[in-house]
């Protein structure tokens, strides 16, 4: 959480200092990005599945000087907490299908942004607890907010660094949800625009 806060403050300061360099003309650029992320679970979910990882493929379109529309698909896998007896080879995976937006503070070589994503997770669970086998696949809403920065190293190629907070639903009535912090890095290719 502290890392996210520091990152946000640094991004805001950077954009405040260099905000004057935002070009007046409207941008229109499209990117394909491949991300890898490490997920650190928090809350009740951490007690059962304490770590995770995933990779994501997204298409983004920067349609103005600040805003981008993002479509994303991925795969997440979680590791069970060693203190829990979930039987042999327990599995908890999710396929997220997400749509959302990014707000870029500036579009330069460094492009700090905030993001909000939502969509559906197709969640598969396979484990046993106290001898009772659980083998289910179900769909749940996902929610994610975060901050990040794109670094355009070359005209067509860049890096995407981000830190997100996940509040993906599992059983909100309990409440028992896939809450966690996600840190990732990705490579992004510009496929159209300048």
């Amino acid at each position: 959480m502290k890392i996210i806060l520091i990152f946000t403050v640094v991004s805001l300061c950077y954009s405040g200092v260099y905000g004057q360099s935002i070009p007046n003309e409207v941008s229109s650029e499209s990117f394909i990005t491949l991300n890898g992320s490490a997920i650190s679970s928090i809350g009740h979910f951490e007690e059962d599945w304490n770590k995770g990882g995933g990779f994501f493929l997204n298409y983004s379109n920067v349609y103005s000087n600040h805003w981008a529309l993002v479509f994303q698909i991925g795969f997440m896998k979680f590791k069970h907490n060693a203190e829990q007896d979930f039987g042999e080879d327990p599995k908890f995976t999710a396929i997220p299908l997400q749509v959302g937006g990014r707000y870029y503070f500036l579009l330069d070589m460094f492009r700090p942004y905030m993001l909000a994503m939502s969509g559906v997770n197709i969640v598969s669970q396979k484990y046993s607890i106290e001898g009772v086998a659980v083998d289910t696949t179900s769909s749940h809403l996902n929610f994610q907010i975060g901050v990040g920065v794109d670094i355009m190293l070359f005209s067509q190629l860049g890096l995407d660094l981000h830190a997100n907070y996940n509040s993906h639903l599992l059983d909100p009535t309990e409440p028992y949800n896939m809450t966690g912090l996600e840190y990732g890095v990705g490579i992004k290719w510009r496929i159209s625009g300048e």
Binding site: M1, G43, Y165, S167, P172, T173, E174, P175, N177, T179
Partner: peptide, 11 residues
């Protein structure tokens, strides 16, 4: 606040 982030969405 920390508890709310850990809990996530509810009703």
């Amino acid at each position: 606040i920390k508890h709310n982030y850990e809990t996530g969405w509810s009703t």
